[in-house]
Design a binder for these strands. Sequence first.
DNA 1: AAGATTGTTGCTTA
DNA 2: TTAAGCAACAATCT
Length: 270
Amino acid sequence: MPELPEVETIKKGLNKKILNKKIADIVVLKNKSIKGNKKEFTKTLKGNAIKKIERRAKLFICALQKSDKFLLIHLKMTGQLVYNGEKNKHTRVIFKFSDGSKLFFNDLRLFGYLKIVDIEEKNKILEKFGPEPLLPSFTLKKFQKILKGRKTNIKTLLLNQSLIAGIGNIYADEIVFEASVRPDRKIQTLEYKEIKKIWRSIKKVLAKAVKQEGTSIGDYIKADGMEGNFAKFLKVYGKSGEICPACKKEKIKTIKIIGRGTRFCSKCQK
DNA sequence: AAGATTGTTGCTTA
DNA sequence: TTAAGCAACAATCT
């Protein structure tokens, strides 16, 4: 499940490898993986090169050398971008560069996509996202403002990309555990102290996950095909039924919040 | 063999 | 008008 730290890691990896390499050919093995006009997709990319890759929320934004348009890539749940790997049965798109190297877009469940957009469409998509939580401009004050008047629970809020960008199911669970707050706590019942702790935990958990290059549970791998290291720091995600690493007494419970599996310790999180 | 897995969209409801 | 909640999408694993 690529979330902010995973997308950030892949972005860094690709920026070291594929910038300004001429795309000699582009092979689309699965039409569904291309959103929008397929002909425009191939036409825009063939003979072109990616000038710079940026990240916003969980989305890659690739600026192109010979076009004002942009290539957007979303990995959704099972997408991978692997440089110089090998084609497999889940490979959907292959970028062939003129130096002989290749970039593979693999996506087992076919939810991810690649899409060419103009600058207007790009801006329209990007303006829907909430603030980037790791930027210094994401202050406690800003977070308080986002919470103000909300009737939902804290996990639902953390997952809402239009309120805060980049948090998914893994890090939402880890953040509220770190903050000792139950994932189903209603926003309106949170005290200032708890809000501050959640805000700090957002920064702390995401920054550490970026440093450890993401969580390789399921399908996520880095651009070089290697795994990220954050899985060994997980405290609740994937730990259902195990003893809580903090209190060492209570078992980690699983509940459902907006249809998502949600793990927490009922002793440590209030 | 049904149910769980999850990011986002789009719809319905309040 | 806006927010909240949920089904749908897809393929695999348990």
